[in-house]
Nucleic acid binder design. Structure first.
Lengths: 220, 220
DNA sequence: GATAGTTTCATACAAGTGTTTGAATTGCAA
DNA sequence: TTGCAATTCAAACACTTGTATGAAACTATC
Protein backbone atom coordinates (compact mmCIF):
# COMPACT_ATOMS: atom_id res chain seq x y z
CA UNK A 1 0.00 0.00 0.00
CA UNK A 2 2.80 2.30 0.90
CA UNK A 3 4.58 1.92 -2.39
CA UNK A 4 2.70 1.03 -5.54
CA UNK A 5 5.97 1.80 -7.19
CA UNK A 6 6.63 -1.76 -8.28
CA UNK A 7 3.06 -2.24 -9.41
CA UNK A 8 3.01 0.75 -11.69
CA UNK A 9 6.52 0.13 -12.92
CA UNK A 10 5.33 -3.25 -14.12
CA UNK A 11 2.25 -1.79 -15.76
CA UNK A 12 4.27 0.82 -17.58
CA UNK A 13 6.94 -1.60 -18.72
CA UNK A 14 4.41 -4.17 -19.85
CA UNK A 15 2.40 -1.63 -21.81
CA UNK A 16 5.48 -0.32 -23.52
CA UNK A 17 6.76 -3.75 -24.47
CA UNK A 18 3.41 -5.03 -25.63
CA UNK A 19 2.85 -1.90 -27.68
CA UNK A 20 6.24 -2.27 -29.32
CA UNK A 21 6.54 -6.00 -29.87
CA UNK A 22 3.08 -7.46 -29.44
CA UNK A 23 1.87 -10.02 -26.95
CA UNK A 24 3.31 -12.90 -28.88
CA UNK A 25 6.93 -12.53 -27.98
CA UNK A 26 7.05 -10.58 -24.76
CA UNK A 27 7.79 -12.79 -21.79
CA UNK A 28 7.32 -12.09 -18.11
CA UNK A 29 11.08 -12.01 -17.80
CA UNK A 30 11.26 -9.28 -20.44
CA UNK A 31 8.77 -7.24 -18.50
CA UNK A 32 10.44 -7.53 -15.12
CA UNK A 33 13.79 -6.75 -16.68
CA UNK A 34 12.38 -3.60 -18.29
CA UNK A 35 10.72 -2.63 -15.02
CA UNK A 36 13.76 -3.50 -12.90
CA UNK A 37 11.77 -5.64 -10.51
CA UNK A 38 11.92 -9.24 -9.43
CA UNK A 39 10.31 -11.97 -11.50
CA UNK A 40 7.91 -12.97 -8.75
CA UNK A 41 6.58 -9.44 -8.45
CA UNK A 42 4.15 -9.90 -11.31
CA UNK A 43 2.41 -12.82 -9.72
CA UNK A 44 2.52 -11.16 -6.33
CA UNK A 45 0.87 -7.96 -7.51
CA UNK A 46 -1.39 -9.20 -10.28
CA UNK A 47 -1.93 -12.88 -9.63
CA UNK A 48 -0.98 -14.01 -13.11
CA UNK A 49 0.25 -12.81 -16.44
CA UNK A 50 -3.23 -12.91 -17.89
CA UNK A 51 -4.62 -10.77 -15.10
CA UNK A 52 -1.87 -8.25 -15.74
CA UNK A 53 -2.84 -8.06 -19.39
CA UNK A 54 -6.50 -7.86 -18.53
CA UNK A 55 -5.99 -5.01 -16.08
CA UNK A 56 -3.89 -3.17 -18.62
CA UNK A 57 -6.55 -3.60 -21.26
CA UNK A 58 -9.50 -2.69 -19.06
CA UNK A 59 -7.81 0.46 -17.82
CA UNK A 60 -6.86 1.62 -21.28
CA UNK A 61 -10.15 0.59 -22.76
CA UNK A 62 -12.30 2.71 -20.52
CA UNK A 63 -9.90 5.61 -20.86
CA UNK A 64 -9.99 5.48 -24.65
CA UNK A 65 -13.73 5.07 -24.75
CA UNK A 66 -14.21 7.97 -22.38
CA UNK A 67 -12.02 10.12 -24.57
CA UNK A 68 -13.94 9.25 -27.72
CA UNK A 69 -17.30 9.75 -26.07
CA UNK A 70 -16.21 13.07 -24.64
CA UNK A 71 -15.42 14.32 -28.12
CA UNK A 72 -18.67 12.93 -29.39
CA UNK A 73 -20.89 14.33 -26.64
CA UNK A 74 -19.25 17.72 -26.87
CA UNK A 75 -19.97 17.85 -30.57
CA UNK A 76 -23.54 16.71 -30.19
CA UNK A 77 -24.38 19.14 -27.42
CA UNK A 78 -22.88 21.95 -29.37
CA UNK A 79 -25.18 21.12 -32.26
CA UNK A 80 -28.21 20.63 -30.04
CA UNK A 81 -28.27 16.85 -30.26
CA UNK A 82 -27.19 16.65 -33.89
CA UNK A 83 -23.54 16.60 -34.79
CA UNK A 84 -22.45 16.56 -38.45
CA UNK A 85 -21.40 13.10 -39.53
CA UNK A 86 -17.85 14.24 -40.21
CA UNK A 87 -17.43 15.33 -36.63
CA UNK A 88 -18.76 12.05 -35.32
CA UNK A 89 -16.40 10.08 -37.48
CA UNK A 90 -13.56 12.31 -36.44
CA UNK A 91 -14.31 11.55 -32.81
CA UNK A 92 -14.30 7.88 -33.66
CA UNK A 93 -11.02 7.55 -35.51
CA UNK A 94 -9.16 10.70 -34.54
CA UNK A 95 -7.83 9.78 -31.11
CA UNK A 96 -6.49 6.42 -32.21
CA UNK A 97 -4.86 7.76 -35.36
CA UNK A 98 -3.28 10.63 -33.49
CA UNK A 99 -1.98 8.27 -30.81
CA UNK A 100 -0.43 5.80 -33.22
CA UNK A 101 0.90 7.88 -36.09
CA UNK A 102 2.83 11.10 -36.27
CA UNK A 103 6.32 11.93 -35.04
CA UNK A 104 7.75 9.08 -33.05
CA UNK A 105 8.12 10.99 -29.84
CA UNK A 106 4.49 12.06 -29.86
CA UNK A 107 2.99 8.63 -30.22
CA UNK A 108 1.10 7.36 -27.23
CA UNK A 109 1.98 4.04 -25.72
CA UNK A 110 -1.65 3.66 -24.72
CA UNK A 111 -2.98 4.00 -28.24
CA UNK A 112 -0.38 1.66 -29.66
CA UNK A 113 -1.13 -0.84 -26.96
CA UNK A 114 -4.82 -0.72 -27.80
CA UNK A 115 -4.09 -1.33 -31.46
CA UNK A 116 -2.06 -4.38 -30.55
CA UNK A 117 -4.92 -5.57 -28.42
CA UNK A 118 -7.34 -5.11 -31.27
CA UNK A 119 -5.10 -7.13 -33.55
CA UNK A 120 -3.64 -9.99 -31.62
CA UNK A 121 -6.63 -11.13 -29.66
CA UNK A 122 -4.95 -12.94 -26.79
CA UNK A 123 -7.32 -14.93 -24.55
CA UNK A 124 -7.58 -12.62 -21.53
CA UNK A 125 -8.51 -9.74 -23.79
CA UNK A 126 -10.88 -11.66 -25.98
CA UNK A 127 -13.01 -12.38 -22.92
CA UNK A 128 -13.49 -8.72 -22.12
CA UNK A 129 -13.72 -7.34 -25.58
CA UNK A 130 -17.48 -7.66 -25.87
CA UNK A 131 -17.97 -4.38 -24.10
CA UNK A 132 -16.48 -2.61 -27.08
CA UNK A 133 -19.62 -3.45 -28.98
CA UNK A 134 -21.78 -1.47 -26.56
CA UNK A 135 -19.38 1.39 -27.01
CA UNK A 136 -19.58 1.25 -30.78
CA UNK A 137 -23.34 1.14 -30.58
CA UNK A 138 -23.30 4.60 -29.06
CA UNK A 139 -21.48 5.86 -32.11
CA UNK A 140 -23.91 4.07 -34.37
CA UNK A 141 -26.69 5.88 -32.53
CA UNK A 142 -25.10 9.25 -33.09
CA UNK A 143 -24.52 8.45 -36.74
CA UNK A 144 -28.13 7.46 -37.15
CA UNK A 145 -29.24 10.75 -35.67
CA UNK A 146 -26.96 12.58 -38.07
CA UNK A 147 -28.23 10.64 -41.07
CA UNK A 148 -31.83 9.78 -40.24
CA UNK A 149 -32.71 8.88 -43.80
CA UNK A 150 -30.00 6.24 -43.92
CA UNK A 151 -30.72 2.59 -43.27
CA UNK A 152 -29.20 0.82 -40.29
CA UNK A 153 -27.29 -1.50 -42.56
CA UNK A 154 -25.58 1.40 -44.27
CA UNK A 155 -24.76 2.99 -40.93
CA UNK A 156 -23.07 -0.15 -39.67
CA UNK A 157 -21.17 -0.62 -42.90
CA UNK A 158 -19.99 2.96 -42.74
CA UNK A 159 -18.87 2.53 -39.16
CA UNK A 160 -17.08 -0.66 -40.10
CA UNK A 161 -15.29 0.94 -43.03
CA UNK A 162 -14.22 3.94 -40.98
CA UNK A 163 -12.61 1.74 -38.37
CA UNK A 164 -11.18 -0.42 -41.11
CA UNK A 165 -9.35 2.42 -42.79
CA UNK A 166 -8.04 3.83 -39.53
CA UNK A 167 -6.80 0.57 -38.07
CA UNK A 168 -5.40 -0.83 -41.28
CA UNK A 169 -3.53 2.37 -41.99
CA UNK A 170 -1.95 2.19 -38.58
CA UNK A 171 -1.08 -1.48 -38.82
CA UNK A 172 0.34 -1.24 -42.31
CA UNK A 173 1.78 2.23 -42.10
CA UNK A 174 5.25 0.94 -42.80
CA UNK A 175 4.16 -0.92 -45.89
CA UNK A 176 2.19 2.04 -47.21
CA UNK A 177 5.20 4.27 -46.80
CA UNK A 178 7.40 1.80 -48.61
CA UNK A 179 4.84 1.09 -51.32
CA UNK A 180 4.33 4.76 -52.05
CA UNK A 181 8.04 5.47 -51.74
CA UNK A 182 7.30 8.01 -49.07
CA UNK A 183 4.71 9.86 -51.12
CA UNK A 184 2.06 9.04 -48.53
CA UNK A 185 3.12 11.02 -45.51
CA UNK A 186 1.94 9.20 -42.42
CA UNK A 187 3.50 11.76 -40.14
CA UNK A 188 0.95 14.32 -41.25
CA UNK A 189 -1.68 12.88 -38.96
CA UNK A 190 -4.32 15.50 -39.61
CA UNK A 191 -4.17 14.75 -43.30
CA UNK A 192 -4.63 11.06 -42.60
CA UNK A 193 -7.58 11.77 -40.33
CA UNK A 194 -9.10 14.02 -42.98
CA UNK A 195 -8.73 11.35 -45.65
CA UNK A 196 -10.27 8.62 -43.55
CA UNK A 197 -13.13 10.84 -42.41
CA UNK A 198 -13.71 12.05 -45.93
CA UNK A 199 -13.96 8.61 -47.48
CA UNK A 200 -16.10 7.29 -44.65
CA UNK A 201 -18.40 10.26 -45.04
CA UNK A 202 -18.75 9.58 -48.73
CA UNK A 203 -19.49 5.94 -48.01
CA UNK A 204 -22.28 7.04 -45.70
CA UNK A 205 -23.78 9.85 -47.74
CA UNK A 206 -23.21 8.86 -51.34
CA UNK A 207 -26.06 8.38 -53.79
CA UNK A 208 -29.48 7.85 -52.37
CA UNK A 209 -30.45 4.35 -51.37
CA UNK A 210 -28.43 1.91 -53.41
CA UNK A 211 -26.52 4.01 -55.82
CA UNK A 212 -24.03 1.80 -53.98
CA UNK A 213 -24.12 -0.65 -56.84
CA UNK A 214 -21.92 1.04 -59.42
CA UNK A 215 -23.14 0.67 -62.97
CA UNK A 216 -22.94 -2.74 -64.52
CA UNK A 217 -20.02 -3.92 -62.45
CA UNK A 218 -21.84 -4.77 -59.28
CA UNK A 219 -24.57 -6.51 -61.19
CA UNK A 220 -22.21 -9.03 -62.62
CA UNK B 1 10.01 -39.60 -53.32
CA UNK B 2 7.70 -42.54 -53.73
CA UNK B 3 5.15 -41.24 -51.27
CA UNK B 4 4.81 -37.54 -50.61
CA UNK B 5 1.78 -38.60 -48.70
CA UNK B 6 3.15 -37.60 -45.31
CA UNK B 7 4.54 -34.38 -46.65
CA UNK B 8 1.30 -33.14 -48.12
CA UNK B 9 -0.73 -34.40 -45.19
CA UNK B 10 1.36 -32.17 -42.97
CA UNK B 11 0.97 -29.22 -45.30
CA UNK B 12 -2.79 -29.62 -45.43
CA UNK B 13 -3.18 -30.09 -41.70
CA UNK B 14 -0.93 -27.17 -40.90
CA UNK B 15 -2.73 -24.85 -43.27
CA UNK B 16 -6.09 -25.82 -41.86
CA UNK B 17 -5.03 -25.36 -38.25
CA UNK B 18 -3.22 -22.09 -38.88
CA UNK B 19 -6.19 -20.75 -40.80
CA UNK B 20 -8.55 -21.67 -38.00
CA UNK B 21 -6.60 -20.83 -34.89
CA UNK B 22 -3.71 -18.64 -35.95
CA UNK B 23 0.01 -19.25 -35.65
CA UNK B 24 0.09 -18.29 -32.01
CA UNK B 25 -1.41 -21.36 -30.49
CA UNK B 26 -0.86 -24.16 -32.94
CA UNK B 27 1.96 -26.43 -31.92
CA UNK B 28 3.85 -28.98 -33.95
CA UNK B 29 2.15 -31.66 -31.91
CA UNK B 30 -1.25 -30.31 -32.92
CA UNK B 31 -0.25 -30.48 -36.54
CA UNK B 32 1.09 -34.01 -36.51
CA UNK B 33 -1.97 -35.16 -34.60
CA UNK B 34 -4.26 -33.60 -37.19
CA UNK B 35 -2.20 -35.11 -39.98
CA UNK B 36 -1.87 -38.50 -38.31
CA UNK B 37 1.88 -38.61 -38.71
CA UNK B 38 4.78 -38.87 -36.34
CA UNK B 39 6.16 -35.85 -34.55
CA UNK B 40 9.57 -36.17 -36.14
CA UNK B 41 8.08 -36.10 -39.61
CA UNK B 42 7.91 -32.33 -39.72
CA UNK B 43 11.59 -31.88 -39.10
CA UNK B 44 12.42 -34.72 -41.43
CA UNK B 45 10.44 -33.34 -44.35
CA UNK B 46 10.74 -29.61 -43.82
CA UNK B 47 13.78 -29.11 -41.64
CA UNK B 48 12.04 -26.96 -39.07
CA UNK B 49 8.72 -25.50 -38.10
CA UNK B 50 9.65 -22.14 -39.58
CA UNK B 51 10.53 -23.69 -42.90
CA UNK B 52 7.18 -25.42 -42.96
CA UNK B 53 5.41 -22.11 -42.41
CA UNK B 54 7.56 -20.41 -44.99
CA UNK B 55 6.88 -23.05 -47.63
CA UNK B 56 3.17 -22.84 -46.90
CA UNK B 57 3.22 -19.08 -47.24
CA UNK B 58 5.33 -18.95 -50.37
CA UNK B 59 3.18 -21.49 -52.14
CA UNK B 60 -0.06 -19.77 -51.27
CA UNK B 61 1.37 -16.35 -51.88
CA UNK B 62 2.32 -16.96 -55.48
CA UNK B 63 -0.94 -18.77 -56.11
CA UNK B 64 -3.01 -15.88 -54.76
CA UNK B 65 -1.00 -13.29 -56.59
CA UNK B 66 -1.29 -15.21 -59.82
CA UNK B 67 -5.05 -15.41 -59.40
CA UNK B 68 -5.39 -11.69 -58.79
CA UNK B 69 -3.11 -10.80 -61.66
CA UNK B 70 -4.98 -13.14 -63.96
CA UNK B 71 -8.23 -11.31 -63.25
CA UNK B 72 -6.48 -7.99 -63.68
CA UNK B 73 -4.74 -8.82 -66.93
CA UNK B 74 -7.88 -10.32 -68.41
CA UNK B 75 -9.79 -7.16 -67.63
CA UNK B 76 -7.10 -4.89 -69.01
CA UNK B 77 -6.64 -6.81 -72.23
CA UNK B 78 -10.37 -6.84 -72.79
CA UNK B 79 -10.42 -3.06 -72.51
CA UNK B 80 -7.34 -2.63 -74.65
CA UNK B 81 -4.96 -1.77 -71.85
CA UNK B 82 -7.47 0.22 -69.85
CA UNK B 83 -9.73 -1.48 -67.35
CA UNK B 84 -12.34 0.50 -65.43
CA UNK B 85 -11.22 1.22 -61.91
CA UNK B 86 -14.07 -0.84 -60.43
CA UNK B 87 -12.88 -3.93 -62.23
CA UNK B 88 -9.33 -3.43 -61.04
CA UNK B 89 -10.45 -3.04 -57.47
CA UNK B 90 -12.66 -6.05 -57.80
CA UNK B 91 -9.70 -8.11 -58.96
CA UNK B 92 -7.78 -6.83 -55.94
CA UNK B 93 -10.23 -7.56 -53.15
CA UNK B 94 -12.64 -10.04 -54.71
CA UNK B 95 -10.68 -13.29 -54.45
CA UNK B 96 -9.75 -12.75 -50.81
CA UNK B 97 -13.24 -11.74 -49.77
CA UNK B 98 -14.79 -14.65 -51.59
CA UNK B 99 -12.34 -17.06 -50.02
CA UNK B 100 -12.86 -15.86 -46.48
CA UNK B 101 -16.53 -14.98 -46.26
CA UNK B 102 -19.69 -16.66 -47.44
CA UNK B 103 -21.17 -19.99 -46.44
CA UNK B 104 -18.83 -21.90 -44.18
CA UNK B 105 -18.39 -24.85 -46.49
CA UNK B 106 -17.38 -22.62 -49.38
CA UNK B 107 -14.61 -20.79 -47.62
CA UNK B 108 -11.14 -21.55 -48.81
CA UNK B 109 -8.52 -22.65 -46.37
CA UNK B 110 -5.94 -20.99 -48.54
CA UNK B 111 -7.55 -17.56 -48.36
CA UNK B 112 -8.11 -17.78 -44.65
CA UNK B 113 -4.52 -18.86 -44.16
CA UNK B 114 -3.30 -15.86 -46.11
CA UNK B 115 -5.40 -13.53 -43.99
CA UNK B 116 -3.86 -15.01 -40.86
CA UNK B 117 -0.45 -14.52 -42.37
CA UNK B 118 -1.24 -10.91 -43.16
CA UNK B 119 -2.34 -10.33 -39.59
CA UNK B 120 -0.06 -12.21 -37.29
CA UNK B 121 3.28 -11.49 -38.84
CA UNK B 122 5.32 -14.41 -37.53
CA UNK B 123 9.09 -14.18 -38.19
CA UNK B 124 9.48 -16.66 -41.07
CA UNK B 125 6.72 -14.87 -42.98
CA UNK B 126 7.86 -11.38 -42.20
CA UNK B 127 11.12 -12.14 -43.94
CA UNK B 128 9.44 -13.03 -47.22
CA UNK B 129 6.62 -10.56 -47.16
CA UNK B 130 8.47 -7.84 -49.03
CA UNK B 131 7.56 -9.37 -52.33
CA UNK B 132 3.97 -8.44 -51.74
CA UNK B 133 4.93 -4.85 -52.31
CA UNK B 134 6.05 -5.58 -55.84
CA UNK B 135 2.77 -7.29 -56.41
CA UNK B 136 0.75 -4.35 -55.12
CA UNK B 137 2.75 -2.03 -57.32
CA UNK B 138 1.36 -3.77 -60.35
CA UNK B 139 -2.11 -2.94 -59.16
CA UNK B 140 -1.09 0.62 -58.48
CA UNK B 141 0.14 0.77 -62.07
CA UNK B 142 -3.17 -0.44 -63.45
CA UNK B 143 -5.05 2.00 -61.27
CA UNK B 144 -2.89 4.84 -62.50
CA UNK B 145 -3.65 3.90 -66.08
CA UNK B 146 -7.36 3.85 -65.28
CA UNK B 147 -7.22 7.23 -63.55
CA UNK B 148 -4.43 9.12 -65.30
CA UNK B 149 -5.49 12.47 -63.94
CA UNK B 150 -5.16 11.27 -60.36
CA UNK B 151 -2.04 11.89 -58.30
CA UNK B 152 0.13 9.01 -57.15
CA UNK B 153 -0.61 9.85 -53.54
CA UNK B 154 -4.33 9.47 -54.10
CA UNK B 155 -3.81 6.20 -55.94
CA UNK B 156 -1.83 4.72 -53.09
CA UNK B 157 -4.32 5.92 -50.51
CA UNK B 158 -7.14 4.42 -52.51
CA UNK B 159 -5.30 1.12 -52.77
CA UNK B 160 -4.62 1.21 -49.06
CA UNK B 161 -8.24 1.91 -48.19
CA UNK B 162 -9.52 -0.82 -50.48
CA UNK B 163 -7.34 -3.42 -48.80
CA UNK B 164 -8.21 -1.94 -45.43
CA UNK B 165 -11.93 -2.41 -45.91
CA UNK B 166 -11.59 -5.91 -47.29
CA UNK B 167 -9.19 -7.22 -44.67
CA UNK B 168 -10.83 -5.53 -41.72
CA UNK B 169 -14.23 -6.79 -42.75
CA UNK B 170 -12.88 -10.31 -42.86
CA UNK B 171 -11.04 -10.04 -39.57
CA UNK B 172 -13.93 -8.44 -37.72
CA UNK B 173 -16.77 -10.15 -39.51
CA UNK B 174 -18.01 -11.67 -36.29
CA UNK B 175 -18.08 -8.37 -34.50
CA UNK B 176 -19.83 -6.62 -37.37
CA UNK B 177 -22.51 -9.27 -37.40
CA UNK B 178 -23.01 -8.94 -33.68
CA UNK B 179 -22.89 -5.17 -33.73
CA UNK B 180 -25.47 -4.93 -36.47
CA UNK B 181 -27.55 -7.73 -34.93
CA UNK B 182 -27.31 -9.65 -38.15
CA UNK B 183 -28.45 -6.77 -40.31
CA UNK B 184 -25.13 -6.78 -42.16
CA UNK B 185 -25.17 -10.06 -44.02
CA UNK B 186 -21.59 -11.23 -44.44
CA UNK B 187 -22.68 -14.38 -46.17
CA UNK B 188 -23.78 -12.34 -49.17
CA UNK B 189 -20.24 -12.06 -50.44
CA UNK B 190 -21.03 -10.32 -53.67
CA UNK B 191 -22.80 -7.57 -51.77
CA UNK B 192 -19.75 -7.15 -49.57
CA UNK B 193 -17.47 -7.00 -52.59
CA UNK B 194 -19.76 -4.46 -54.22
CA UNK B 195 -19.74 -2.27 -51.12
CA UNK B 196 -15.98 -2.33 -50.74
CA UNK B 197 -15.39 -1.68 -54.42
CA UNK B 198 -17.96 1.08 -54.46
CA UNK B 199 -16.48 2.97 -51.53
CA UNK B 200 -12.95 2.52 -52.77
CA UNK B 201 -14.01 3.79 -56.18
CA UNK B 202 -15.56 6.86 -54.60
CA UNK B 203 -12.40 7.44 -52.62
CA UNK B 204 -10.43 7.37 -55.84
CA UNK B 205 -12.72 9.36 -58.09
CA UNK B 206 -14.45 11.82 -55.78
CA UNK B 207 -14.30 15.57 -56.36
CA UNK B 208 -11.41 16.92 -58.31
CA UNK B 209 -8.22 17.58 -56.44
CA UNK B 210 -9.09 18.15 -52.82
CA UNK B 211 -12.83 18.23 -52.73
CA UNK B 212 -11.53 15.62 -50.36
CA UNK B 213 -11.73 18.15 -47.59
CA UNK B 214 -15.41 18.21 -46.71
CA UNK B 215 -16.71 21.65 -45.79
CA UNK B 216 -15.23 23.30 -42.75
CA UNK B 217 -14.52 20.12 -40.89
CA UNK B 218 -11.34 19.04 -42.57
CA UNK B 219 -9.97 22.53 -42.41
CA UNK B 220 -10.27 22.64 -38.69
C1' DG C 1 15.69 -62.65 -51.71
C1' DA C 2 19.59 -59.86 -49.93
C1' DT C 3 20.92 -55.09 -49.55
C1' DA C 4 21.12 -50.11 -49.51
C1' DG C 5 18.47 -46.02 -49.09
C1' DT C 6 14.42 -43.85 -47.50
C1' DT C 7 11.00 -43.06 -44.30
C1' DT C 8 8.70 -43.78 -39.81
C1' DC C 9 8.58 -44.21 -34.96
C1' DA C 10 9.15 -43.87 -29.77
C1' DT C 11 11.79 -41.47 -26.98
C1' DA C 12 14.89 -38.18 -25.10
C1' DC C 13 16.84 -33.56 -24.92
C1' DA C 14 17.68 -28.67 -24.15
C1' DA C 15 15.64 -24.39 -23.73
C1' DG C 16 12.02 -21.43 -22.43
C1' DT C 17 7.55 -20.55 -20.24
C1' DG C 18 4.48 -18.98 -16.16
C1' DT C 19 4.10 -19.98 -11.43
C1' DT C 20 5.30 -21.22 -6.57
C1' DT C 21 7.99 -21.31 -2.49
C1' DG C 22 10.13 -19.93 1.66
C1' DA C 23 13.52 -17.21 3.41
C1' DA C 24 15.28 -12.39 3.61
C1' DT C 25 14.32 -7.61 3.73
C1' DT C 26 11.78 -3.61 4.33
C1' DG C 27 8.59 -0.24 6.39
C1' DC C 28 5.50 1.17 9.78
C1' DA C 29 2.89 1.03 14.27
C1' DA C 30 3.03 0.36 19.20
C1' DT D 1 13.43 -0.69 19.86
C1' DT D 2 10.34 -4.37 19.16
C1' DG D 3 7.04 -6.82 16.51
C1' DC D 4 4.28 -7.69 12.60
C1' DA D 5 2.69 -7.33 8.19
C1' DA D 6 3.83 -6.25 3.48
C1' DT D 7 7.07 -6.70 0.04
C1' DT D 8 11.20 -8.39 -2.37
C1' DC D 9 14.26 -11.86 -3.77
C1' DA D 10 16.82 -16.13 -5.54
C1' DA D 11 15.84 -20.42 -6.54
C1' DA D 12 13.27 -24.17 -8.03
C1' DC D 13 9.10 -26.30 -10.05
C1' DA D 14 6.09 -28.23 -13.47
C1' DC D 15 5.05 -27.91 -17.97
C1' DT D 16 5.30 -27.04 -22.94
C1' DT D 17 7.87 -26.01 -26.82
C1' DG D 18 10.85 -27.30 -31.09
C1' DT D 19 14.44 -30.40 -32.21
C1' DA D 20 17.63 -34.49 -32.29
C1' DT D 21 18.63 -39.45 -31.98
C1' DG D 22 18.98 -44.13 -33.14
C1' DA D 23 16.56 -48.14 -33.87
C1' DA D 24 12.79 -50.19 -36.56
C1' DA D 25 9.99 -50.68 -40.74
C1' DC D 26 9.49 -50.11 -45.31
C1' DT D 27 10.73 -49.84 -50.53
C1' DA D 28 12.95 -50.58 -54.47
C1' DT D 29 17.14 -52.25 -56.99
C1' DC D 30 20.25 -55.76 -58.09
Amino acid sequence: MASDHTRSAILAAAERLYADRGFGDVTLRDIVAEANVNLAAVNYHFGSKDELIAELFVTRSIATNRERLRELKAAEEQGGGHAPIEVILRALVGPTLRGCLGPENQRSTAARFMIRASIESVPPIRRIKNREIDHLRKFAGAMRRALPERSDVDIYWGLNFALAMAHHTIRESERLTKLSEGKCDLDDVEDVVARVVSVATMALTAGRAEAKAPSRVAAR
